[in-house]
Design a protein around this nucleic acid. Structure first.
Lengths: 154, 154
DNA sequence: CGTGATTAATCAGGGCACTGAGTATTTCAG
DNA sequence: CTGAAATACTCAGTGCCCTGATTAATCACG
């Protein structure tokens, strides 16, 4: 009585989608490096020397989570972390050679995995899929951070 | 060099979508009860007396996670857990009055939240959104569980 | 110059999610 | 009827994800 159909709840679907992805990643990409870890490696390939907070911003990880992820990557020797001499609060991050190698290797595999993951959709549908998820995510993000860069200036 | 655009990676988008949902849930629905916890309550409203494993199956939580979630709900007095007299391996679950009340209260709020969450999409787009995510999730699930109920029998 | 606000990082704590191993109970084959 | 397989659950371990509080460094303003 009064129970709800969860399959019409976007949150439930989002969770299931992520679980599905997690599983596929685990079998097709890596059991060592997780998807968020790969995102961090990728951000540092694009912009070496970023500080911890900014990396978190780039990949969508909050201050606590990014700290953990970076600590793990550092422990495995995939990146180096040094205090910024200009600003003693910051930690600057840079991939090691091993980190770069790992990123390159996983890049190939993630591409394959994404193909398999999206295989049930036509190419057009894939585009829509990306667009819809992005719009919903961005809007929710916006609710939190009323950044309004297009507000009418005085 | 050789960095990838994460916004074209479904896994990354799935994670962001879930984060966005988590945040909205936290502010619009409840800081006490999480979305997976609500899913469990909902499953038990629909089918009281289910065993733990089946509840997990209904809401998409694995054996370990469902155990934790149920333990928390039990600790808060929202459900009761009794050994099945017919089969000593099973734990049968049933909501308390407080559990039913909580479910009813949150049902209203989740409906409101879903509206806000999906507001950036037109009604037609919402339908597509559900359909695409469901198809991708189901297909990935299928890769894990080759249940193939429509395989050609001998 | 110095004090108060801001900022980067850390820590403690709670919750979700998975795997692999272990325990208890039931089921079923021989 | 008994021992092996299957099943439900638990436990240990790893990792992601968030909040609130704390610490250290920088910055801004008077």
């Amino acid at each position: 009585m009064a129970a709800v159909d969860l399959t019409a709840h976007p949150g439930h679907l989002a969770r299931r989608l992520q679980q599905a992805h997690y599983l596929l990643w685990n079998t097709m990409v890596s059991e060592e490096i997780t998807s968020p870890q790969f995102a961090v490696l990728n951000a540092l390939v694009a912009e070496p020397g970023l500080d911890q907070r900014t990396v978190g911003e780039r990949v969508g990880l909050d201050r606590s989570t990014i700290a953990e992820v970076i600590s793990r990557l550092g422990r495995r020797g995939l990146l180096d972390k040094v205090r910024d001499p200009q600003d003693g609060r910051r930690s600057l991050l840079r991939l090691t050679d091993d980190g770069v190698r790992t990123h390159r290797k996983l890049t190939v595999r993630t591409a394959r995995m994404n193909q398999v993951f999206l295989a049930p959709l036509s190419v057009d549908e894939q585009t829509v899929f990306f667009d819809l998820i992005r719009r919903v995510s961005d809007a929710a993000e916006e609710l939190r951070n009323p950044a309004d860069p297009l507000a009418t200036p005085s």
